Computed example of a mutant assay.
Amino acid sequence: MARRRYLMAYDIADPSRLRRVCNLMEDHGQRLQYSVFLCDLSLGERADLETSVAEVMDLTEDSVVEIDLGPANRPAAVRCLGRPRALPESGPQIV
């Protein structure tokens, strides 16, 4: 099952919906910044996450940006300026 790395960012207007979307993102990836997550997902996992998030969102007020960084085993480079951040390793992780 091929996995791809995605950078996911959200802007949710309502605090209740924000918490629900944040919980979904935390279940699928690692937080880089307040509303930015790095997720290694299969196509099925991505579809499930998109469906779950869309069910929570108000599509007239909220937005989620998804950037495909490529295959999880060799994703596009992510660089940090300023305070360094520990980026998650590629591939599945056992928590």
Rank of each mutant, 00 (worst) to 15 (best):
Q30S: 10
M57N: 04
Y6C: 01
R46K: 05
P92E: 12
H28Y: 15
I94M: 11
F37H: 03
V21D: 02
I94N: 05
V21T: 07
D62G: 15
A72L: 06
R19E: 13
G82C: 10
L43V: 06
F37S: 10
G44N: 05
L69D: 09
L87W: 04
P71T: 15
P75Y: 14
H28E: 03
S63T: 15
R19S: 13
Y6D: 03
L81R: 07
P84T: 09
L87V: 05
R5I: 10
D48L: 10
R85Q: 13
V64E: 12
A54W: 02
E50Y: 05
L24D: 02
L38I: 14
G82I: 15
L69P: 00
M25A: 14
R85L: 15
I12V: 12
Q93M: 06
G44F: 02
R5F: 06
D27V: 00
P15S: 13
L69H: 08
S42G: 10
L49I: 04
G82R: 08
R17F: 00
D68I: 14
A2P: 15
E89I: 06
A72H: 08
V36M: 05
M25S: 03
Y34R: 11
V95P: 06
V21A: 05
P15V: 04
C80W: 04
E55I: 00
M57P: 03
Q33W: 01
R4I: 00
V65L: 15
Q30P: 00
V64T: 13
P15Y: 08
D68V: 14
G44I: 13
V64H: 11
L59D: 04
I12G: 11
E61A: 15
V53K: 01
F37K: 04
P71H: 11
L7G: 01
P88K: 09
E61D: 14
L43H: 07
P71C: 13
P15D: 13
D58Q: 10
M25N: 02
L7T: 01
Y6E: 04
G29Q: 01
L38D: 05
L49W: 11
V64D: 12
A72N: 10
D48R: 13
L24V: 02
C39L: 07
P88C: 10
R20W: 00
R85G: 01
S52P: 00
A2I: 11
D58Y: 12
D58W: 14
D58P: 04
P75S: 09
Y34A: 09
S90Q: 07
P84E: 10
M57D: 09
C22D: 12
P15M: 07
R4W: 07
S63C: 15
R85S: 10
E61V: 11
E61N: 12
I67S: 13
D27P: 00
M8E: 03
S16R: 15
A2F: 06
N73I: 09
R74T: 12
D40S: 07
S52G: 08
R31E: 03
A9H: 03
R31F: 00
P92C: 06
L24S: 04
A2V: 12
Y10Q: 06
A76F: 14
L69Q: 08
A77S: 11
D62A: 13
A13E: 12
L32A: 07
L69M: 14
Q33F: 05
F37N: 03
D27C: 05
L49H: 02
R74K: 12
D68T: 13
L24F: 01
L49C: 04
R31D: 03
Y34F: 14
V78L: 15
G44S: 11
L49V: 04
L43P: 02
P84R: 08
